[in-house]
Design a protein around this nucleic acid. Structure first.
Length: 477
RNA sequence: CGCGGGGUGGAGCAGUAGUAGCUCGUCAGGCUCAUAACCUGAAGGUCGCGGGUGCAAUUCCCGCCCCCGCAACCA
């Protein structure tokens, strides 16, 4: 039943802020897929990490009066807390300041250069001295830097390295002609349309004198890599590329199935630029990139000024890890944008977890504990296709919906068969029925494994030990 | 004519060429094993608007209106 080795990675969040629910969504969805694959018997390598270079991080560190190294260490730790809070099962946490990663980024650079895809060119940009950074035209407010409106924007020219993305137009179109390469399908159309428009070469370095916090460009003391060139390399550096002393790169990247998860704004980076970099460096391209939607809150983007920011660890603290994982799985469809509010979260929690799953476990296990002598684990074979098929297509919410359909059906069954009556009139038949119910509960718990690992364990334990569990999801009023 | 997504009962969403479903909320019953939980039933929608093709369209085609992202060196 087991398939090829499975490689899965999220994008790396930039460490200039606390983790927000958007990233929680990405990593929880990825975690669910990773756990599902393991459940199916596949060997999985699940990667995440932090993107720690770049101007913004350098500035944020200065603002907090910290050394950059100390600053990025602090944030790397925040993400460690997220691992516990969301019960994440990643196998590797790559930090782009990791020396081995730096070496890998430089190696990929060298290979792209050797392929003739890197050249020097003058770059002209709008530079704000206050920010010590280049800005985009669209960043400007009335032609001024929004952070430093009293400083004049300078048009500065510097010499940078460029990557010949334009060389890869045809190869990228060929790559994108494979319908497997992007999920959902309509995002692939978007990528194709973008490539067909014509591709421009990208600047991939900055003058060190202006931007020092980055990976040194091989063979040029005066330049550092522009963050994304370095950051994208993490997907292979985490596997030990290029040395690959442990053979993980070979096993998971070259011979395995390679899947990336990313936000819908990442198409250009993940499915176009990164793929071109891989082609240039002579490395296998990504098999599939899955693009998820964004979370809004109250119909708007989350922002501190609007006060509608939902902080994942805060939700975990109040409702518990599995409740948050559940909500992200079932009520945030994989590919679409979703609106998340505390009210909606609470409604879903009470309806589906407290009244649904939690109550079902209570009523069945109360009967079992009272009337059965001992519990047992059921004979299990596979999983229903209503469950596996959507998960294979990353339609996590559909699989979750199926599980909740089973929960509802079991509630109906209890009402209709009335084991609490039967056990009085015909104890043997009643016991048999109650036992059956515990077995069905067990199977529901088993399907919950990727979504809610701790709940799966709790239900398994309850059935086997024939003991009513502690209130799994207390009602919140 | 920039690209894409979406407009379905009070709210949030599924869905399909042929009696329009789910969750929450509302109303009325039932049950008592359970976390004032669970089950049954009811009210409530001309499936954004206007055309077209079909025996038949919410579902296919065309036009329009509205909302939301994106529009490249921002990870």
């Amino acid at each position: 039943m087991a398939g090829k080795p499975f490689y899965l990675t999220t994008t790396l969040p930039y460490v200039n802020a606390e983790p927000h629910i958007g990233f929680a969504l990405e990593i929880v969805h990825a975690d669910i897929i990773a756990r599902y694959k393991r459940l199916m018997g596949d060997e999985v390598f699940f990667n995440t990490g932090t993107d720690e270079h770049g101007q913004k991080i350098y500035q944020a560190a200065q603002k907090e009066g910290k050394a950059v190294e100390a600053y990025v260490d602090h944030y790397a730790q925040t993400f460690e807390i997220l691992k516990q809070g969301l019960d994440l099962s990643y196998d590797a946490f790559i930090r782009t300041t990791n020396p081995a990663h730096v070496v890998a980024a430089q190696e990929l650079w060298k290979r792209c250069a050797a392929a003739g895809d890197i050249y020097k060119k003058k770059y002209k940009g709008l530079y704000c001295v206050g920010d010590e950074a280049f800005l985009r035209e669209s960043d400007l407010v009335d032609g001024k830097c929004p952070n430093h409106p009293n400083m004049a924007i300078q048009e500065i020219e510097e010499e940078n390295y460029f990557f010949k993305l334009s060389n890869y137009q045809d190869k990228l179109l060929q790559y994108l002609s494979n319908p497997e390469v992007i999920l959902p399908a309509w995002r692939r159309e978007e990528a194709v349309a973008f490539v067909k428009q014509g591709l421009e070469d990208f600047s991939i370095s900055r003058e060190k004198s202006r931007m020092s916090w980055g990976v040194p460009v091989p063979g040029d003391e005066t330049q550092v890599m522009y963050v994304w060139f370095d950051a994208l390399t993490n997907y292979i550096s985490t596997l030990g590329w290029p040395e690959d002393t442990e053979g993980k790169f070979k096993k998971f990247w070259q011979e395995g199935e390679v899947v990336q998860v990313a936000g819908k704004d990442q198409i250009r980076f993940q499915s176009i630029i990164w793929q071109a970099m891989l082609m240039s460096g002579g490395v296998k391209t990504t098999d599939k990139v899955v693009y998820h939607g964004f979370i809004t809150s109250g119909g708007q983007k989350m922002s501190k000024s609007l006060g509608n920011v939902i902080e994942p660890l805060g939700l975990v603290k109040e409702y518990g890890t599995d409740a948050v994982r559940y909500f992200l799985a079932r009520h945030v469809p994989t590919f679409e944008d979703s609106d998340v509010t505390l009210e909606r979260f609470k409604t879903a929690y009470n309806a589906d977890l407290a009244n649904g799953l939690g109550n079902l476990a209570s009523r069945i296990m109360q009967l079992a504990q009272t009337h059965l002598d001992k519990g047992a684990r059921p004979e299990v074979s596979g999983f229903p296709k209503e469950y596996t098929e959507p998960l294979e297509k990353f339609e996590i919410y559909k699989a979750a919906e199926y599980v909740w359909q089973c929960i509802a059906e079991l509630d109906v069954k209890i009402t209709e068969t009335a084991p609490f009556k039967l056990v009085k009139s015909d104890p043997e038949a009643g016991k048999k029925l109650i036992f059956e119910l515990t077995q069905e509960l067990y199977l529901i718990g088993r399907m919950l494994n990727p979504f809610m690992p701790a709940t799966n364990e709790a239900i398994k334990k309850a059935v086997i030990e024939n003991k009513k569990p502690e209130n799994l999801f207390p009602r919140k009023d």
